[in-house]
Design a protein around this nucleic acid. Structure first.
Lengths: 152, 152
DNA sequence: GCTGAAACCAGGTAACC
DNA sequence: GGTTACCTGGTTTCAGC
């Protein structure tokens, strides 16, 4: 992966609807080799998918919350089952197994506190926790899917 | 926004490279009216952008961390300047103004602890904090850009 | 073996019903 | 919202470097 691939990824991370010919111009290549590089990046799994991003406010998702939990269960089987359950809850968009004080950290999006409480209840119904803490985002100041390309 | 629009969004959130004709089939429409709906969703800002998602491991971004900070400064001017500075740090992919114990919560991606410390130093160089806590993700169990469509 | 020109074809876009 | 036609842009082939 050279600097041209990096430049291609930079463009596609920002706007994947950019025509190949335009990307080719930007990186100083003609369309065909540029297209082949994109194809290769997709085949090799560097580019995993192309998605449409949606304005969460337009979907009535005005509340963003973080739930951190502790649990007494630390088996592989418990983790697998827990992760699988969380993957089925669409309001929980992230789940991290953490080091330190909390065992798991989740990011939740939903319309309001009433709906948040429903997600919360759904969550505590799928697994047992010894401690649960919720904190709420008042303002989304930065949120991007663009990853830094400085380390390749 | 009706159930057809919802179905269209569901498909595009999952894979924005799906051909319009295929989407049209799925939602029981012919290509043109389906395309018109997609165009409208984009114009109205429901669909904000189309992006390529990249495997962070392939970009050498193996460390995910959360930094929560407290600050003594609570003016609008300070917030604006702080947010602007953070937006210029590519390793910080999320910044939330929080309620409760912490004032701001950030999500950071970088290769390792050494690079994390550099981001940390960059962060404390752009703003003054009274308290800074870092926690680290050991395992990414769920991470999606697909938002729940149950509330429209 | 990789690049780019040109031909080709799928799919996005527009006009019309 | 559908049908048809058009035309941009993605994809393949092939010649040249």
């Amino acid at each position: 992966m050279d600097s041209i691939d990096k430049a291609i990824i930079a463009i596609l991370q920002r706007d994947s609807s950019t025509p190949v010919s335009e990307i080719a111009d930007s990186v100083g290549l003609s369309a065909t080799p540029c297209w082949r590089r994109i194809k290769k990046l997709e085949e090799e799994g560097v580019i995993t998918k192309r998605v449409a991003l949606v304005d969460r406010h337009r979907l009535n998702l005005r509340l963003t919350a973080f739930i951190s939990v502790r649990t007494a269960h630390h088996s592989e089987a418990w983790l697998t089952k827990f992760a699988e359950s969380v993957r089925r809850i669409p309001e929980i968009v992230e789940l991290h197994r953490m080091s330190g004080d909390t065992d798991y950290l989740m990011k939740v999006v939903c319309p309001d506190m009433v709906r948040f409480d429903k997600v919360y209840k759904k969550l505590i119904s799928v697994a047992e926790f010894s401690d649960v803490k919720s904190s709420f985002s008042m303002e989304d100041l930065k949120s991007t899917t663009e990853l830094p390309l400085d380390y390749i």
